[in-house]
């Protein structure tokens, strides 16, 4: 039996050795790469099968999700599916439970009931409820936060290296002694980070401390961090909050570019209806933790329950 985190670690090792075989010493690292690859294959074969399947084209399947805080039913029997490669918008009035849904998917909260099935990076379907909160990232789910959570005491580049934390395979001793393998690994991760910074247009801020940077830049750093982790599903919690109109327009272009470049699925919560209607393929509206409507932006916009929830009518507006 092996765990998925072991498999991921071995995969990183193989990648590092293969890269070093090309860059430095073909014989030495080629041999190490073959050894590590063998181990990786053994570990993959020893991975217990989850026995789960998802319908064709679905990446995330949420079934009967409930999250209760005492008597408060923040999410109450929510069911929806996210298709591979789409931009999926989750909307609803304040307090509808949107962020709670995100927190359940990323395991910040353990749901009271319901299942969360997800097809991870290697095509295996996993039960997210069995994952620890810090292991969710290995499956390919990365998120940002509604109130920007950038590490202010680190430079922009270092913030991205933190996002690449699980890509390091060096152990504590190798780190404490700064052995060559750590330095080589550091260089590889740094290069990856530089590419992301370039993609996001943040290269100029590389060595700046995050502390004191403008809000728009901090929001971009958060998105850059998600790109650092080979995302399969990016979860964005109000990416446009606090941005002006120009920045919002830029953001919608950026989100589309991310989907094309990184071939990932994007799940977002947003209050800016213009943005949601503009970029989302599917929109899901919820209120008081319950599903109101799901469909294309036009369908959801025309839905009577949705209009009532937003305008406060009695459903016959």
């Amino acid at each position: 039996m092996s765990s998925y985190s072991q498999v991921e670690r071995l995969r990183r090792r193989v990648e590092l050795y293969e890269e070093l075989a090309v860059l430095e010493n073909a014989e030495k690292y080629g041999k190490k790469a073959r050894g590590a690859r063998q181990k990786l294959e053994n570990a993959r074969a020893a991975l217990p099968s989850t026995g789960l399947t998802l319908p064709e084209g679905v990446v995330l399947d949420v079934q009967g999700l409930c999250m209760y805080f005492g008597g408060v039913k923040a999410v109450d029997g929510l069911t929806f599916q996210v298709k591979k490669g789409e931009i999926f918008g989750l909307i609803g009035p304040n307090g509808a439970g949107k962020t709670t849904v995100f927190n359940c998917i990323t395991q910040f909260y353990k749901p009271t009931a319901g299942t969360l099935h997800f097809e991870n990076k290697s095509g295996q379907v996993v039960d997210l409820n069995r994952e620890k909160v810090h292991d969710v990232i290995l499956q390919g789910i990365v998120r940002n936060f509604q109130n920007v959570e950038v590490i202010r005491e680190l430079s922009v580049l270092d913030n991205l290296l933190v996002a690449g934390h699980r890509q390091y395979t060096s152990n504590l001793v190798q780190q404490a002694l700064h052995l060559p393998i750590l330095r080589k690994e550091e260089r590889a991760v740094r290069e990856r980070a530089m590419k992301v910074l370039d993609f996001m247009g943040l290269t100029a801020y590389r060595d700046w401390y995050a502390f004191g940077l403008p809000y728009g830049v901090l929001k971009k750093i958060e998105i850059a961090r998600t790109l650092m982790c080979e995302p399969q599903l990016i979860i964005l919690d109000e990416p446009a909050a606090g941005l002006n109109d120009t920045e919002t327009a830029e953001l919608s272009r950026l989100i589309r570019r991310i989907r094309e470049e990184y071939r990932c699925t994007i799940l977002l919560v947003e209050h800016d209806m213009g943005l949601v209607m503009d970029i989302c393929d599917t929109v899901c509206a919820i209120s008081f933790g319950k599903l109101l409507a799901i469909g294309t932006p036009e369908q959801v916009q025309a839905d009577k329950d949705v209009q009532a929830a937003y305008l406060g009518g009695d459903g016959e507006v």
Binding site: V133, V136, E149, E153, L161, V162, S170, L172, H178, R225
Partner: peptide, 20 residues
Amino acid sequence: SPTGRAMLAMKNSTSAAQAM
């Protein structure tokens, strides 16, 4: 090293650290 950065991340924001 990654360890020092991870600790600093944890000090600044526990939720961001966990998400990473």
